[in-house]
Simulated assay, not measured.
Amino acid sequence: MSTVTTRNRTLAMGEDEATNGARAMVNAPFGRALARIAKENPAIVGLTADLGKYTDIHPFRDACPERFFNIGMAEQNMIAVAAGLARTGKTVFATTYGVFASRRAYEFAAIACAHSNLNVKIIAGLPGLTTGYGGTHQAIEDVALMRMIPNMVVIDPCDAVEIESAVEAIAAHQGSVYMRLLRGQVPRVLPENYTFEIGKARPLREGTQIGIISTGLMTERALDAAAALEARGISVGVLHVPTLKPFDGVAVARFAAGVEYLVTAENHVVQGGLATLVAEALFDAGQVKPLTRIGLPDQFIECGSVQTLQAQYGISLDAMIDTIGALVS
């Protein structure tokens, strides 16, 4: 795993996934992991919809050029090609932006891939509010859409360690997968020995007053917020839920039973994603618990600086600390 430690990064289109504070950074964890796995698995093929640079698949392209195909700006066609390749025994990793995979190619992902439980792994860049290019590029409702497709596994990893581990897991998984992607210089938050498992949530921090249930990049902020609130005498636990489908409702119910207040934190609209899944899990378990939802509103987000927009819509670290701290005070 190649790492650098840095506070500042040169941002490009699709590389606005800013991290809080100084953490070890890993360059292109998805592409590096895929290249490594592909050396031992000749069935792996990589596709992109003219977004190879911005979805970090170039390390795979360089390692296995004969198994890499740029389909062009035609996401529906790319997913159809992926399905055809999967029917010949290939394990296909197809990369594009989440908005195009979930909105434009939805029918193809559902019927061409998931309906036949094919080995197509859709790797979706620019998840949620990680770009300032507005509603045309911000995949703010993709989890809600993709989790409604039968047979489709949905994953939102939090850091470089989990991305690399998840690539291994989904390559071995029989069936279709939709995985959100953090690209470029990605922080390392989880321990080096962390292992991702499809369908498993992981408690990362114990607490008794507030319980934060988080997914994706919001888990890094949940951990930082918990540490900041602990300094104020507030006990905060964190449960990381990287798999949105299948959902670990048992772990959620167990975690919820040990705290006074629950908070969900997601880089997604609060309808249909993590918050909804948590509420469903609590209902199924017969639990009643105060629940505060941190996430994006049900609206298209305007163009602007990523950091400014995240603060404006309440998913920045400072905004999280204010929201959670107010629950106890």
Rank of each mutant, 00 (worst) to 15 (best):
N151Y: 10
F300D: 14
T55C: 13
Y261D: 10
I315G: 00
E75Q: 08
V99W: 01
C158W: 01
C303P: 09
V263D: 06
L291P: 10
D298N: 12
T208V: 13
A35P: 13
Q185V: 09
G31D: 02
N77G: 07
V177M: 04
T88K: 13
A281R: 08
Q138I: 06
A225S: 12
P246F: 05
D62R: 13
V250F: 10
E75H: 08
R180K: 11
I321M: 05
I163Q: 03
A49S: 14
C64V: 10
A86D: 01
A49E: 11
D318M: 07
I155V: 15
F93A: 08
Q138H: 04
V161S: 10
H240D: 15
I149V: 15
I123Y: 00
T276F: 08
A24E: 15
L262Q: 04
V161M: 11
V263I: 08
V161H: 07
I234G: 03
L34E: 09
L34W: 04
A12S: 15
N70K: 00
Q310T: 12
S116T: 13
V269P: 05
M179D: 02
R36I: 04
T208K: 15
E192H: 09
P150R: 04
T5L: 12
A110E: 12
H115T: 09
A94S: 08
I212T: 05
G249E: 09
S165P: 12
A101Q: 13
R183Y: 08
Y106P: 07
T264A: 06
V278A: 08
T96Y: 05
R104E: 05
A251C: 04
A201E: 08
R103P: 02
G207N: 13
K289G: 10
D16M: 15
S329F: 11
I149C: 08
Q312L: 11
T96F: 02
A43S: 15
V270P: 00
G128S: 08
Y54W: 13
T215I: 07
V236Q: 06
Q312C: 02
T3D: 12
V263E: 06
L282V: 10
H173V: 03
D298A: 09
A144Y: 06
G21P: 10
G46E: 11
E141T: 14
A227F: 01
H240Y: 14
E266L: 06
A225K: 03
A281P: 09
T130H: 06
Q307E: 15
V99R: 03
L190Y: 01
D156P: 03
V177D: 00
G258A: 14
N20S: 15
V250Q: 15
A169H: 08
G72W: 09
E141W: 07
V186K: 02
T130G: 02
R221T: 10
R147V: 09
L126D: 11
T91F: 00
L85P: 03
T195I: 12
I301G: 04
G184C: 00
H268E: 12
A228C: 00
D156N: 14
A227H: 09
P29M: 01
V288R: 15
F247C: 07
A105H: 01
A139Y: 01
R61S: 14
E164D: 13
M218K: 06
I301T: 00
V153E: 07
L34T: 02
A63E: 11
T208F: 00
F60A: 04
A281E: 10
